[in-house]
């Protein structure tokens, strides 16, 4: 097998649904041993990219390779890639265990393996019940169990925490981390950056069918014009505080009644400056950029474009046909 088998390589994918361009030159790679977050608003092309990776949809241009091969050429695809696309995609009249069993049979995997993934995902006795009666959380676990069945080096999860309760989200995060720690390539899509905070090592941020940023989480946070300090101070001292801090080279903005937002100085320096000038204040708090803020900053441009010509053809519109949630 040429190339690392635990690698995803997407090059120049283009795809249109009617008049809407779903993918417009999508390119990125996913490396083993880390969780790569695949982030963008609904309709940005996350699900379409994943469907193309799995050979379900055809791209008009470009290539989507897993371990150096297109999906359709994989000999034993479930041993190469595990995917959770849509947790609701199980037959409601079939028992959860039977759903896993037919997948196992397709690759001549023993029934023992089915019981292992049932154990691993905590599906437990629910596996003996019909999937139609499952909660969303149980469906997600069943979908994860199906993805893990072939013990694949590459995993694709489309919005895996969507609809999970807090305990389920915690479990999912731990699972994603440990899968990456085992050296697998893990691609996780989400339309909420906050869902990936503390989980993803690397981010591929997309909008309107193309990659906006392909960066490590650390770099993204560092690059965000993030570190600000909030100063609470009373009315009479506010103007003096602004003058003192501005003179020291900070950018100061009055962001609320009695609140100043200062950037360009750290909290310790702000306290020292205000104290030295005898300005009274009731609080100084450092404010670190969150992943969400860094992401918002990054996507503002794309979002503004999308919000402009609103209408059914807007690629980010909730009814955008490129959105995996809406298409079917």
């Amino acid at each position: 097998m040429d190339g690392n088998e635990a690698q995803i390589e997407v090059r120049g994918l283009r795809k249109r649904f009617g008049a809407v361009t779903a993918l417009d030159g999508m390119s990125f790679t996913v490396e083993p041993g880390q969780v790569t977050g695949f982030v963008g608003p609904n309709g940005a092309g996350k699900s379409t990219t994943m469907r193309i990776l799995l050979g379900l949809d055809r791209a008009e241009e470009g290539s989507a390779l897993i371990g150096g091969r297109p999906y359709r050429e994989l000999r034993n695809p479930l041993l190469a890639v595990g995917a959770l696309l849509d947790a609701a995609a199980v037959h409601p009249a079939r028992r959860g265990r039977d759903h896993l069993l037919w997948l196992a049979h397709s690759h001549r995997l023993p029934a023992r393996r089915v019981d292992e993934v049932i154990e691993q995902t905590g599906l437990g006795p629910a596996a003996r019940r019909r999937a139609g009666g499952y909660s969303l959380g149980m469906r997600q676990r069943l979908g994860i169990a199906a993805a893990l069945l072939g013990d694949p080096p590459v995993l694709l999860f489309d919005e895996p925490v969507n609809g999970l309760d807090p305990e389920g989200i915690r479990w999912m995060r731990g699972l994603l981390r440990s899968l990456a720690a085992q050296g697998r390539a893990v691609l996780v899509s989400s339309h909420l950056m906050s869902e990936l905070e503390g989980t993803a090592d690397h981010l591929v941020v997309i909008g309107r069918g193309r990659v906006l940023a392909d960066t490590s989480v650390r770099e993204l946070l560092a690059g965000a014009s993030g570190d600000r300090v909030e100063v609470r101070t009373g009315e009479p001292d506010r103007d003096r505080a602004m003058t003192v801090l501005a003179d020291a080279g900070a950018t100061v903005a009055a962001t609320g009644r009695g609140t100043l937002t200062v950037s360009g100085l750290d909290a310790q320096r702000v306290v020292a400056l205000l104290g030295g000038a005898g300005v009274a204040f009731s609080g100084v708090a450092a404010h670190r950029a969150t992943l969400e803020e860094a992401y918002m900053e990054l996507t503002r441009e794309a979002a503004e474009f999308a919000a402009g010509p609103s209408g059914p053809s807007g690629p980010s519109g909730p009814s955008g046909p490129a959105s995996g949630e809406d298409r079917r």
Binding site: R75, H107, P110, Q120, W171
Partner: peptide, 29 residues
């Protein structure tokens, strides 16, 4: 709720043979 163990990977084994895979698809159906 156990984390994922390394798992006794099924490995390619006899399932890697193309003939067995074809039968696998029939078995799955």
């Amino acid at each position: 709720m156990s984390g994922p163990g390394p798992g006794p990977g099924p490995g390619p084994g006899p399932g890697a043979r193309a003939g067995a895979r074809r039968l696998g698809t029939v078995h799955a159906e």
